[in-house]
Amino acid sequence: MTIYFLSTTFFSDVDINLLKHLAKEHKIIYGVIFSKLDSNYTIEELEDLCGRYNIEFVPINLKYRHRNPRNLITFYKVLRSIKKSKADLLYTLDFNELYLNTMMFFLRSAKSTIVGFHDVENHSGTKNAFFANFAKHLLFKKFRFLQTFSNVQNNLLRDMYPKKNIFSIPMTLKDFGEKPLIEPTKQVCFLFFGNILPYKGLDNLMKCVNRLAEKRSNFKLIIAGRSNDWNEVYEPLIEHPEVLETHIGFIENKEIPEYFTRANYLVLPYRDVTQSGPMSIAYHYNVPIIATDLEGFREFIAEDVSGYLFDGSDVNGLYAVLENAIMRSDEEYSALKDRLASFVATEFSSESVVEKYNRMFDFVKEHA
């Protein structure tokens, strides 16, 4: 089967780990949109990865900012490229491109198209939320075959569109390369990783770390990721710089394994969640999770197996789970990592995820 897989560099870390398996069974044409700002990969990096896995690579450069109507010319070329490929099936992710979604709504046949949605509902504080929602609903209404990456999002979408064919398939784990050799330390290392946005709750984590540092010094919090308001919002919260290590800015893909090798726990103190990219990296590198007790996390985190959940409405909830992690013995922590490895092997194997995609592709081809 020939599959045209349309995405953006923002999702390429997940895409490649899926496509390298699908390319063993299908001809994959990977169309990738490179934004004018904030592309997570260069063309050369993705060209190299696609070459390794026998994936046909089609780079698509956006010359203008996302809401610039001059992008319509580029998106028209995208649709022509899809038609010219004569693919049996189009799989496209929704990335809130209003102009592209509008053109898909009016120009693209719905018969053999699957649309994947990472966020059926926008996160709190999403910029231009009205336009993002409008763009999503164009695709919800147009296409018969839809996919989500969690059961929580799947249920939301089914409630809105009960007559659609909706599939739920989890993300593949994110692999950024081998773990480097790092000398172990006696400090417990907590990691906050990824784009720093209000809904991710870093402010609460930093306030909690301030309290912990008043009575303990045998821990460290690493903060690594991009922020548009670090100096104004987050840096003023630092009271104990001796327990903090900050790397504010774009994190190169080659740097990611080191952060997750150093980390004893990945901390996700989110206020709301659909699914988490950093969690997929942590599971690949066998790093336990500490996260807010939200429905979107409960689906993927098993208590005292793959990590620990805390009550986000309790001001002491995060403090307690962090302190317990600091106090956990080496033997208890080693046993936790063993349980995590078994959990991931059972629940998130590449083979099971790829099998679900193949079943979805077969269903769509049969019923289109």
Rank of each mutant, 00 (worst) to 15 (best):
T2F: 04
I3T: 10
F5C: 12
T9A: 10
F10L: 13
F11Q: 13
F11K: 13
D13C: 05
L18D: 08
L19C: 09
L19N: 14
E25H: 14
K36I: 06
L37E: 10
N40C: 04
Y41G: 11
E47P: 07
L49V: 08
G51D: 11
N54M: 06
I55V: 10
V58C: 13
I60A: 12
R65E: 13
H66Q: 10
N68L: 00
P69R: 03
P69T: 00
F75C: 05
K77W: 00
L90C: 05
D94Q: 00
D94M: 02
D94R: 02
F95R: 08
E97S: 09
L100N: 06
N101W: 02
T102D: 00
F106V: 01
A110Y: 05
S112W: 02
I114D: 10
G116F: 00
G116A: 09
H123K: 03
H123Q: 03
S124D: 11
F131R: 00
H137F: 00
L138F: 04
K142I: 02
R158D: 07
R158I: 08
N165H: 09
S168Q: 14
T172V: 10
K179P: 01
T185H: 05
T185N: 10
Q187G: 08
C189K: 14
F192G: 12
G194V: 03
I196Q: 08
Y199K: 10
M206D: 12
M206G: 10
K207W: 08
C208T: 15
C208E: 15
V209Y: 08
N210L: 11
L212E: 12
K215R: 14
R216Y: 13
N218S: 13
A224W: 06
E235G: 02
E242P: 09
V243F: 11
G249H: 05
I251L: 09
I251W: 06
N253L: 04
E255F: 02
F260L: 04
N264G: 03
L266D: 12
V267P: 11
L268M: 15
Y270T: 09
Y270G: 12
R271Y: 08
D272Q: 04
S276Y: 06
M279W: 00
M279Q: 13
M279C: 07
Y285F: 04
V287S: 06
G307E: 11
S313D: 15
S313K: 14
S313N: 15
V315E: 15
N316T: 12
Y319W: 08
A320F: 00
A320H: 11
L322T: 13
A325D: 09
I326C: 14
M327Q: 12
R328N: 12
S329Y: 10
Y333I: 05
L340I: 01
S342F: 02
V344F: 03
E351H: 00
E351M: 01
S352Y: 01
K356P: 01
R359Q: 15
D362F: 00
F363R: 13
H367M: 10
H367E: 15
H367Q: 14
